[in-house]
Amino acid sequence: MGKAEGQVLVKAENLKRYFRVEAGLFSRGKARWVHAVDGVNLHIRKKEIFGLVGESGCGKTTVGKLFLGLERPTSGSVYFDGVDISKLSREELRKLRREMGIVYQHPQSSLNPRMLIEETLRRPIEIHKLAKNEQEKKRMILDVLDEVGIERYLLERYPHELSGGQQQRIAIARILLLNPKFIVLDEPTSALDVLVQAHVLNILSNLHEKFGFSYLFISHDLDVVEHISDRMAVMYVGKIVELARKKDLRRRAMHPYTRSLLAAVPIPDPRKKMKKREILRGEVPSAISPPRGCRFHPRCPHAMDICRKKEPKFKDVGGGHYVACYLFKSSR
């Protein structure tokens, strides 16, 4: 399908980010490393919604921060519109910030509790000098409020006086002011009730439709990611194990981890209880000392000898479907 294969906007090349774990007081020098992100390659096209799914601690949030330059990679590069942002200075990066934005999981902690909503929304305009005068500022603020469906009187409130859904919409409005090209949505609806989640998802979809942003939508909730994304990838212990167009990921899931993830998600249909489905045993391994070979092999029902020794390559199996597993052959 040659459908909307637009230009690449953001690209990660062999992206790695390790965090140092402080060893105890008396064991300096023996520092250990958390391999939070360990060799991620992916690109997001213009006007694309890209979903990233994984369980807690798989490194998906770190990928989002690396994409925005909020974390510096240990190695590898992130290209934004052709510019390698991992090589930019702090100040150059700061100026690039109006091109991108991030929405966090917990809306109440992503807004400054001591700032009125009005000032919160005023800041981006002032930092990047987006308005010529006070009237224009006011107009811009009122415009974005309409976009996210927030009433004007809330401008005079503090974040804690708003509901979770309202706070999240203010966080979105703040980013809209910058009119960026790329927005990272890090579990934007995970802390919200289902009705509020539906509302926020609708707003995000409509804004995407209207302004043509690219989204990186990060979540542990497969259904939500599948609902909103064009393409999606599954992450496991710092690596992407499978990447496909969203229709293919459920229908033609290949990687055993993806399949067990799909099997584990409860389905809101009482006639399809999971009794018969296979339940994945064991737990996510530590990212400090990930298993050798394929990282999933200790839990994998299909593990072979080679899986324990050599790490599988991330290969193209055709139709824009990629998987890192020995069970499948490359289409080339």
């Binding site: 509302h199 609708n202 439709e209 609902h227």
Partner: peptide, 22 residues
């Protein structure tokens, strides 16, 4: 009814989840 239709199910159209005033 709204609660059940607000769940993003496979096949639900993007931007068209059921919802009521929050």
């Amino acid at each position: 009814q709204v609660l059940i239709n607000a769940i993003p199910k496979p096949g639900a159209k993007r931007g068209k989840l059921a919802t009521i005033p929050p």
